[in-house]
Design a protein around this nucleic acid. Structure first.
Length: 582
RNA sequence: GCCCCAGUAGCUCAGUGGACAGAGCGACCGCCUCCUAAGCGGUAGGCCGCAGGUUCGACUCCUGCCUGGGGCACCA
């Protein structure tokens, strides 16, 4: 019976443990596994992995690195795992895994539901705050990043066993609702009670507000009425919220993002907790009046004058701003929801604000020891001019339009290839392309918005991964049910491309675990691309069904099946579909 | 002014202190009587923003500078 502890099939971790043991025998030093400095080796040197500890250790001990490497290698036992280690260059210790070990690892991980991931993950309850569109505004490309990144992280964390609670911190409160409700009253609902274009509606309201003093003053009175809970005003506000939710649901549906009304926790939901937040801060002795406002001055933040920077928790007019709402949300998430980890998938521009909020929540005791709060920051979407695309300018691309364009283009490509339209496939391909374009590069860097780039279907795109998966799926279909039996037949890795693919497949667990620790979905994208590349090369040079001999065919089918599982699962973690045919 | 983030091939981007810095797009040259050519193989293309420093070894760490983006009190 193979070990159910899939971590033991992490080649790098296993080698690191053995290297550290050998180093201890050779030097008497007790090293942590990371100190083995185990890295992937270069194909150029025929090494699957390399340990780089001899050089740094030699310096610490005042010894010759190659001689030390040799001593470590003498103490090293990698039987059953790899060929005897080779020393190269200034003291690199190179490893080449045994084919039999790779075969065993593949057999074990391919039958593991997690495909080798999450072996020793301690599950936690994690709140992921993402998407956060604004009521009465269209979702635009700026919301795409938070929605897609947050969704991918939620999927990955659920996959490894965390109890993930999504929280959609919708912007459903604020002074702008005065003018919006007045606009609603003036222009009325359309016959079906729908607003076809939220942005146009918003702009019309703003134009009235700026041009018509009477309208503006009615709008201000509306804000007061809204806050005071006037029934008619509240009813209008609720209609506006409901109508906006309908728009969001369309986008979430297109994106296949599982955010539902149940995950909505808008700013307004914290309204009745805001006075309590301020009181609690006061009794904790954290509150200071300043220029009529009530402020917290968390440690370590300076403003432009070099003075301590204020986090305003109650404005001079008695109202509350978003800082107070964010603090109330933390209390709710830790207190009522029982979160052990809080993730904020929010633009990098909010960094300072969030850190001030975290610092204040720590000082107030709402973020207890052991509860983590992390800003999962992402860069801005820039226009061609290099400036941030702002919804306020009204010129940014509506998400719904971008997504439809993506689907249309994918549909055209499908017709051009096959001559047959396939709407469902066009969606899977088009939406996947948009998502992958966003997920596949590092979160924190800004990027210039490009239709062409987001909708590309060649090269390192989701389509490449889907195509590799579809090819594998086709082969498996042709092979028929039961062709890939999970029996004890060894994988044969006689061809270079078979072996490379096998090694790549073993990287799934480490890749997923890496995303869990770094919260960087692009690591998974890069990994899946490597798998697809390895499979494509294998596919070209190794006939599978046409291999003739069963002893070649069976192991190749197994690799194919394993590849399909890794690609399907990996794409699913990114929120991208893996069709059976393309 | 202070703080944060980023600068890598023509373009878009990967890159865990390690060996000759990698992909995709674009360019050029090849490969479909054979499981999907949305593919595969190859060629060209690099003062890793600049200058110092630490190190046996720096795209990676430190300091300074340059360029771009962002933040710095009652919008969220």
């Amino acid at each position: 019976m193979a070990s159910t502890h899939s971590g033991s099939w992490d080649a790098a971790a296993t080698l690191a443990a053995r290297v550290v043991r050998a180093a201890r025998a050779a030097t008497g030093l007790d090293l942590a596994p990371e100190e083995a400095l185990l890295r992937r080796g270069s194909a150029r040197h025929g090494a699957d992995f390399q340990a780089n500890l001899a050089m740094s250790l030699a310096r610490r001990l005042g010894r010759d690195p190659r001689e030390l490497a040799a001593q470590i290698v003498r103490e090293l036992d990698v039987r059953g795992l790899a060929a005897p280690a080779q020393i190269a260059g200034p003291g690199f210790i190179n490893f080449r895994l045994d084919d039999a070990w790779i075969a065993g690892a593949l057999a074990a991980t391919s039958s593991d539901p997690h495909l080798g991931a999450a072996a020793d993950h301690a599950p936690r309850r994690v709140v992921v705050d993402y998407s956060a569109p604004n009521i009465a505004k269209e979702m635009h490309v700026g919301h795409l990043r938070s929605t897609i990144i947050g969704d991918a992280l939620a999927r990955v964390l659920r996959f490894v066993g965390d109890d993930v609670i999504a929280q959609n911190h919708v912007g459903d409160w604020g002074t702008q609702f005065g003018m919006l409700i007045e606009e609603l009253d003036d222009s009325g609902w359309s016959a079906d009670g729908a607003i076809s274009d939220l942005d146009a509606f918003y702009r019309r309201a703003r134009a009235h507000f700026e041009a018509d003093p009477a309208f503006a003053s009615r709008a201000r009175e509306r804000v007061v009425a809204l806050q005071a809970g006037d029934p008619a005003t509240r009813a209008a506000w609720r209609q506006l919220v409901a109508e906006s939710h309908r728009h969001f649901a369309v986008v979430y549906g297109l994106l296949d993002v599982a955010l539902t009304p149940a995950d909505m926790a808008g700013e307004s939901s914290y309204n009745d907790q805001l006075p309590g937040v301020v009181e609690a801060l006061a009794s904790a002795g954290l509150l200071q009046p300043d220029r009529g406002a009530l402020c917290v001055f968390p440690e370590g933040f300076r403003n432009r004058d070099g003075a301590p920077m204020a986090l305003i928790v109650r404005k001079s007019d008695g109202g509350y701003g978003y800082a107070t709402t964010d603090l109330a949300a933390i209390r709710h998430r830790v207190g009522a929801l029982g979160a052990q980890r809080l993730l904020y998938v929010v633009g990098a521009a909010q960094r300072q604000h969030l850190h001030m909020v975290f610092a204040t929540a720590r000082a107030a005791g709402w973020l207890a020891e052991g509860v983590e709060a992390e800003h999962v920051a992402f860069g801005s979407v820039l226009g061609e001019d290099g400036k941030v695309l702002r919804s306020r300018a009204g010129e940014s691309v509506k998400l719904v339009d971008l997504l439809h364009e993506a689907i249309t283009r994918a549909g055209d490509a499908i017709v051009a290839r096959s001559g047959v339209a396939d709407e469902a496939l066009a969606r899977t391909v088009g939406i996947g392309a948009v998502k992958y374009a966003d997920l596949s590069s590092d979160r924190v860097s800004d990027y210039v918005f490009s239709f062409e780039r987001m909708l590309a279907l060649d090269g390192n795109t989701s389509v490449y991964l889907q195509y590799a998966h579809a090819r594998a799926a086709k082969v498996l279909r042709l092979a028929g049910d039961g062709a890939v039996a999970a029996d004890d037949a060894d994988h044969l890795l006689r061809e270079q491309h078979e072996r490379a693919l096998g090694l790549a497949l073993l990287g799934f667990g480490p890749a997923v675990d890496h995303v869990v620790s770094t919260l960087q979905p692009h690591r998974l994208c890069t990994y899946l691309y490597e798998v697809a590349t390895a499979f494509s090369a294998f596919y070209e040079s190794c006939p599978i069904l046409t291999a003739g001999e069963p002893r070649l065919r069976a192991p190749r089918l197994r690799l194919t099946s394993h590849t399909a599982a890794v690609l399907r699962t990996g794409l699913d973690l990114l929120g991208i579909g893996a069709p059976e045919r393309l």
